[in-house]
């Protein structure tokens, strides 16, 4: 594992940049545990201070330090993303592997359901969920809803891998050896599906974070819990752009773009490492 990481860092520029960016942002987010003030406190500091030696990224119109707000915000946003990713991976793996292994009628039924889910527009459904829940909406509920909407593409991918494993020799051996279906799936097939899970997880994380930003920018989440989108929401509420408080909006945008860039570079370089086809095309270099 460490050897792979070292090789990737040394020979894959995209991975190295992505790794440094993501790690840097992660450490920055981690710093919020040592913040000098609670992230929910408002009007603690003088409002609307531009970036200075004392307040590096300035303060908001609500008297918060942009730097420490961002640190908490990125942490919360990433936590949301990772929760969605783990939940939706569980669904995708379960549906994909069962569908691929059982085949036949089960496969057809599960994949029809899968394709139906793909055709449903996510955003309006999430907005409807928020609308009917309103004040009882909390981030875990939102994460669960997002996870329910975010597993379909990947279930198809995992299914196709399992489908090809089903006819392999070792599967037949396992069946003759009397292993049960869950045993075969978990012990024999899961290791082969792992790379796909890992790669789709990266993409899913990016999608989930994007979703969180979108919803909280509109104020459709717990607005008192700092998130990247939530910061932009409050900045809009206070008309920061018109008032010239540019640092309230610019720094969160820069942070989110850097985070996306880092995660995306990690995702494509890991995919390249896993995928034998693109590996082959690299050999010519």
């Amino acid at each position: 594992m460490f050897k792979i990481l070292r090789d990737l860092l040394r020979y894959n520029r995209e991975f190295a940049i992505g790794f440094v960016l993501t790690l840097g942002i992660f450490l920055f987010a981690l710093a919020h545990f040592w913040a000098p003030m609670p992230d929910s406190a408002i009007y603690l500091l003088p409002p609307d201070m531009p970036p200075s030696a004392q307040y590096w990224f300035g303060t908001t119109s609500r008297g918060q330090d942009v730097l420490w707000q961002m640190s908490s915000a990125i942490w919360n946003t990433m936590l949301f993303g990772i929760t969605v990713t783990i939940l939706s991976r569980l669904l995708a793996v379960a549906v994909g592997m069962i569908s691929g292994y059982l085949g036949g009628k089960w496969d057809e039924a599960l994949m029809t359901l899968n394709d139906t889910m793909i055709a449903l527009p996510n955003i309006p459904i999430l907005l409807l969920v928020y609308f009917v829940m309103r004040d009882s909406m909390s981030w875990p509920v939102l994460a669960a809803t997002a996870a329910l909407l975010g597993w379909n593409y990947d279930a198809r991918l995992i299914r196709s891998v399992t489908l090809s494993l089903r006819t392999r020799e070792f599967t037949r051996h396992a069946v003759f050896a009397g292993m049960s279906v869950p045993q075969i799936l978990i012990r024999q097939h899961l290791p082969y599906v792992m790379p796909v899970i890992f790669f789709t997880a990266m993409n899913n994380l990016i999608w989930a974070i994007g979703l969180e930003v979108t919803l909280s920018v509109l104020g459709f989440s717990d607005i008192n819990r700092p998130t990247i989108g939530g910061m932009i929401y409050w900045a809009n509420q206070h008309q920061a752009i018109i008032a010239g408080i540019w640092w309230w909006i610019a720094f969160p945008i820069v942070a989110i773009v850097l985070l996306f860039l880092g995660l995306f570079l990690l995702a494509i370089s890991v995919n390249e490492y896993i995928d034998p086809r693109s590996r082959l095309s690299r050999m010519g270099v």
Binding site: I206, V213, I232, I249, L261, F264
Partner: peptide, 18 residues
């Protein structure tokens, strides 16, 4: 194009709007 791809619509729109 690929660097833009993961950024959510709202952020891209907001930057254009600004």
């Amino acid at each position: 194009i690929m660097a833009l791809h993961p950024v959510p619509a709202y952020i891209i729109g907001l930057v254009l709007l600004l």
